[in-house]
Amino acid sequence: MIGLEILASHYAYALMFVLLGVGLYMMIANENLVKKVIGVNLFQTAIFLFFVSVAYVEVDGEPGDSPVVPAEVAPGELFVASPLPHVIVLTAIVVGVALTAVALALIVRIYSEYGTLREDTLREVRADE
């Protein structure tokens, strides 16, 4: 029963680790290079969701503390989520977009050189050379 309660209150974390696992599995098990990159994106998205949910965590029983609007101003009335994790996620999304762009550019080049997007075929082609 305690396990269920923890799951009910912490489902965001459980969801995040499931997503993390799905992303990691896609990266390792999928032979298609584009899907590998999608796996990387899922992996990163899981971490972004983790940061967003962290922002709402209570500190010492008080609702989320924030450097801009301290929780003490109106205890029990003013519920402010910490803006810092949101800013972090915003920055991390930009970094993630840049990474995806570079990865796709590399995949375009690999496709034009080898004519395949599958890793196993790629391995065969390279072994032949």
Binding site: L24, M27, V40, F43, A103, L106, I110, Y114, R126
Partner: peptide, 17 residues
Amino acid sequence: GPESAVAALKYLIVGTV
């Protein structure tokens, strides 16, 4: 060479993790 693109993509995926 095309090999460098493959090496870079491998590095990218592992490095991002």
